[in-house]
Design a protein around this nucleic acid. Structure first.
Length: 722
DNA sequence: AGCGATGTATTTTTT
DNA sequence: ATACATCGCT
């Protein structure tokens, strides 16, 4: 492998750096992934570092897998020994090995966002705190913050001065107790608990500090406090820590990401080497210039400007449409045009948006017009109700202490067991510090439960126990199939008349195939392995890059990806930047970084869309163009839909609310000229014969190849130039 | 326990 | 608009 030939000067410097802290400031598209992969390959193949001494933390599981594959091509099979995963998977692995040291057993459950919400609500119930006093959502956010700061309930109590904080402190205390009782970790625990472990057991810490002599952290700008502590702790001994990131691409502040981690790296490690990667290999000059012009409005960033040898490329197309439906149609039109007039495939295209809710209109449009798409995010596959039901059964088999999972499925399908009986059983279990199943064994001692219900509890217990005792003789697929047949879960949905029930059954079947696929890939895998994997997998990890379909996702999900053609929908004020961010300090800057991330995903062409109206809680409201559009130099934009603006600006009702910035885009010249070839959705190809003004609109006379001469309205015909 | 009617708030982004 | 919680009824 000749590293000199495939890397530029700075990339090579980063790859060849051996010992000591290293900060790589890698701009968008600067070949960051290459540098990480080749650096690891170099450490192993040239410096002779043993693969098991390397820890690499990436942003997605998929990125880890891909990098590992590429490293394997250079150094061979031994690449397997590298620990390469996301922060959370790493923490999970540590806990699987050592959680007994902090009072958990290794069949623990991992609670996701949905589980966490249920648990918080339970805790609030328990503490007699109503959802009117404080919203569960707010509590979850606070608890997340507290955990990122690594505070115990007692510690937080001492900080809690105001009323709300005291409520949260109380809920947090119960929440932590319940997690422990259930032998469960939430996402934050996967970082926090390993730190606790390392603090308690210096021997284990020492073992891992010795093991991970070389540490690499990707997307360092997006790590939060607890992740920072975890990394620093591990790197403390050898300080061979290489971090890669870009302060302009920090977009996860809402989950505690702290941009000062990367900004202060040189203070943390005064002898750090700093390497900047500023040559961009991804985008056109136009795209890069526009993106830079936007991001440079941010204050307090490390000043830098990327450059590229790539061609100028076409202008950025900004399209005005009336509303989200028309916006979706405009995207479709552009997609269609690209497919016909360029060599682009659907898999080279992606539509980004700020909020998941925006995907629906676009999905509808694509579905109606037969455009295959893959949707990332929103309600994730493993977040679906029916999938979570089955997973709860599986968890319960693995971890009988998991009361949350127990309660989820004890009456699904219905077994005639109600809230009241469940609560009595749970209280008995908690009082006697026993698992919920041991409580069932004792059920004759619990007063006020009807005999028939006791019998139902017993049956449920026997079913789970039966599968549990047998599970070593069964494959994972057999286990899940047994659950389905014993619970008659599919029948339960078949008897449900709603339109969604077919889809649910389909999803359950897909879960079964996912399990058998998993089992095939990892022959010795246990049910625990599967559940852990599922808890930490994301839609991005499941994405099939080669499927010929256009990708729909939020800009957050798009981080780290690139596409030839990028469409960003909803460039509207209050949506992007989102209204919830506007008052928050630093909120706008974060949104601007998000915009920068979105724009810099594009390699060849970038299309932005904005609407004159947006629907909000049902009603249609006037909406203005995103400020980020104004931050793009006008000469880099090609604007479509000007006649539409003109139409609205002449309406009295509209003019009052009209933002002045619309004015500059008004163009009196009609969009079409005689002699131009156009295409109509229904009538196909034709040539424009005549144009005459008609109110705010234009009357077009067009001769179509197949349908002859027609007179159309320019605004409504939806003609496309060819 | 389960159903339907009524009222009410609406989560921005994700491991 | 719509999902979701709550309440009262069977």
């Amino acid at each position: 492998m000749n590293f000199e030939e495939i890397l530029n000067e700075n990339q090579l410097k980063a790859v060849k750096h051996k010992d000591g802290p290293l900060l790589i400031l890698a701009g968008a598209g600067s070949g960051k992934t290459r540098v990480i992969t080749y650096r690891i390959a170099y450490l192993i193949s040239v410096y002779g570092i043993s693969p098991e001494n390397i820890l690499a933390v990436t942003f997605t599981n998929k990125a880890a897998e891909e990098m590992k594959g590429r490293i394997e091509k250079v150094v061979g099979k031994k690449a397997e020994k590298i620990w390469m995963s996301t922060f959370h998977s790493f923490g999970c692995r540590i806990l699987r090995n050592h959680c007994d040291k902090i009072g958990y057993s290794k069949n623990f459950s991992i609670y996701d966002e949905d589980d966490r919400e249920r648990l918080v609500k339970e805790c609030m119930n328990f503490a007699k705190i109503s959802e009117k006093q404080i919203k569960p959502y707010e509590v979850i956010r606070k608890i997340q913050d507290i955990k990122n700061q690594l505070l115990t309930p007692e510690e937080f109590y001492s900080y809690a001065n105001d009323y709300n904080s005291k409520l949260v402190a109380r809920i947090y205390e119960i929440y932590e107790e319940k997690l422990k009782f259930n032998n469960a970790f939430d996402f934050d625990d996967l970082i926090k608990k390993p730190i606790e472990l390392f603090r308690i057991d210096k021997e284990i810490l020492n073992k891992y500090q010795e093991k991970f002599k070389y540490i690499l952290i990707d997307e360092y700008q997006d790590i939060n406090n607890s992740q920072y502590v975890l990394v620093s702790t591990l790197a403390e001994k050898y300080k061979n820590i290489c971090v890669v990131g870009d302060d302009d691409q920090s977009i996860y502040r809402f989950r505690g990401a702290d941009i000062t981690n990367i900004l202060d790296f040189e203070e943390d490690y005064p002898d750090a080497t700093v390497i900047r990667l500023e040559q961009n290999y991804r985008s056109t000059k136009t795209i890069l210039k526009a993106a830079h012009s936007v991001i440079s409005k941010n204050k307090g960033r490390k000043d830098k400007e990327l450059w590229t040898e790539n061609e100028q490329g076409q202008k950025i197309v900004l399209t005005y449409t009336e509303d989200a439906t028309k916006e979706a149609e405009a995207i479709l039109k552009e997609v269609d045009r690209l497919l016909r007039t360029t060599d682009a495939n659907l898999k080279d295209m992606s539509v980004f948006y700020r909020t998941n809710a925006q995907s629906r209109v676009i999905e509808d449009c694509f579905r109606r017009n037969g455009i295959p798409y893959k949707l990332i995010g929103g309600i994730q596959f493993y977040g679906r109700m029916e999938i979570k039901d089955i997973l709860a059964y599986l968890r319960l088999i693995v971890n009988p202490n998991d009361i949350l999972s127990f309660k989820r499925v004890i009456n699904i399908p219905p077994r005639g067991i109600g809230e009241a009986s469940i609560t009595k059983l749970e209280e008995y279990a908690i009082e006697n510090e026993m698992s919920i199943f041991d409580a069932i064994k004792d059920i004759q001692n619990i007063p006020d439960i009807k005999e028939s219900i006791k019998e139902s509890f017993y049956q449920f217990y026997n079913m789970i126990k039966g599968i549990s005792e047998n599970r070593n003789n069964m494959s994972l697929t057999e286990i899940v199939k047994t659950i389905l047949s014993e619970t008659r879960y599919i029948d339960y949905w078949k008897s449900d008349a709603s339109i969604k029930s077919d889809e649910r059954i389909e999803n359950v079947r897909e879960l079964v195939s996912a399990i058998s696929e998993f089992e095939e890939k990892r022959k010795d895998a246990t049910l625990e392995d599967f559940l852990n994997q599922v808890a930490l997998i994301t839609d991005i990890d499941r994405m099939d890059k080669n499927a010929n379909a256009i990708t729909l996702m939020t800009i957050h999900s798009a981080k780290g990806l690139e596409f030839d053609n990028v469409f960003i929908a909803g460039m509207n004020e209050d949506l992007f930047p989102h209204k919830n961010c506007i008052d928050e300090p630093g909120g706008i800057e974060e949104e601007r970084r998000l915009c920068y991330v979105g724009m810099t995903r594009a390699k060849k062409r970038l299309f932005l869309f904005t609407t004159l109206f947006r629907r909000q809680y049902g009603s249609k409201n006037i909406s203005s163009v995103s400020r980020f559009i104004d931050e793009i130099p006008y000469e880099l934009l090609e604007i479509k839909g000007k006649t539409l603006i003109k139409e609205y600006i002449n309406k009295d009702s509209f003019i009052e609310d009209m933002q002045p910035r619309f004015e500059e885009y008004i163009d009196e010249t009609p969009l079409y000229k005689p002699g131009e070839k156009v295409r109509h959705k229904i009538m196909g190809e034709g040539v424009i014969l005549k144009i005459e003004p008609h109110g705010d609109d234009y009357k077009l006379t067009v001769v179509f190849k197949k349908h002859g001469k027609k007179v159309l309205s320019a605004n409504f015909a939806g003609l496309e130039k060819i």
